[in-house]
Design a protein around this nucleic acid. Structure first.
Length: 110
DNA sequence: CTCGTGACTCCCG
DNA sequence: TCGGGAGCCACGA
């Protein structure tokens, strides 16, 4: 496909290691568009089930889970804790401990 | 093709 | 702390 943004975004998301999290902005930035954060979310929403992407490892710029719904919010938190990501009292994620970013050097294709 | 939508982010007050 | 406005763009209908 010609949409490298979507391809990159999907690839990056699929490479997020367990116990780590990243933000829409970072993904979008590495995918080629700093303003593509929304598209990243959209791709997640649209392809998370199809491509089995770890959407729960993606949070907003504040290190918090996007309040798309009360249940979904709790569900995501549960998944993160299950992977070792402990949330603060405000359900805020400590980026100094859990922030992960795309590492092109790590990629070795297949 | 067009149109509406939004799991984002930044800025101002 | 919270709200409103703007920017940007892929996906689904």
């Amino acid at each position: 496909m010609t949409n490298i943004f979507t391809a990159q975004a999907r690839e990056i998301i699929s490479r997020i290691p367990a116990g780590k999290v990243t933000t829409y902005g970072i993904i979008a930035l590495y995918a080629g568009n700093r303003n593509g954060a929304r598209q990243v979310a959209r791709i997640l929403y649209s392809s998370s089930d199809k491509y089995n992407l770890p959407w729960h490892r993606v949070v907003n710029r504040n290190g918090r889970i996007s309040p798309r719904s009360s249940m979904g919010h709790l569900f995501q938190k549960q998944l993160l804790e299950d992977e070792g990501v402990i949330l603060g009292e405000d359900e805020k994620i400590d980026f100094s401990l859990y922030l992960w970013r795309p590492q092109p050097s790590e990629e070795k294709s297949d």
